[in-house]
């Protein structure tokens, strides 16, 4: 076992150079987080209200509902999950994920739109 406080000492040297998020930077973001939270609440109410509005067909209502949900999800991902300013590697992981999840949905579509049976 080494000296117990030596790792702590080396960490504090490291902390003198934080990688990106400067501590005073964070305080500027707080207003943004609160605003996004408020927006999400408002869009939740909009989602509920729109579902009782007749867009002509039920399919149209589903499309509108999913559009609003996608927008809300985008807000959560971009702001709360810091994706609007993230490192390259995280985007790479997400591109792969998007690709594979789209393939998954495409397989479902193929199974449903079975050209042999229909």
């Amino acid at each position: 076992m080494n000296e117990s406080n030596s790792p702590a000492a080396s960490e504090s040297v490291v902390q003198a150079h934080p990688e990106h998020d400067d501590h005073h930077d964070v305080s500027k973001h707080i207003k943004k987080y609160l605003m996004v939270g408020g927006l999400l609440m408002i869009f939740t109410i909009i989602t509920v209200a729109l579902s009782y509005f007749d867009f002509g067909s039920h399919k149209a209502n589903i499309a509108v509902g999913m559009l609003v949900a996608t927008f809300k999800a985008g807000l959560v991902a971009a702001i709360f999950m810091h994706l609007s300013a993230e490192r390259h590697l995280v985007y790479q992981i997400l591109i792969f994920t998007t690709f594979f999840v789209l393939v998954l949905f495409w397989l479902t579509y193929l199974a449903w739109y079975d050209p042999v049976v229909r």
Partner: peptide, 30 residues
């Protein structure tokens, strides 16, 4: 990687979570 380790770890985990819920949602759609 340009990232502290746990950050990559959680994003890889979330990628697998997307597939988990993606499977269930595609079952729902079907």
């Amino acid at each position: 990687t340009g990232l502290w380790n746990a950050k990559i770890g959680i994003w890889l985990f979330l990628a697998s979570e997307v597939m988990l819920f993606g499977g269930l949602f595609s079952a729902y759609i079907f």
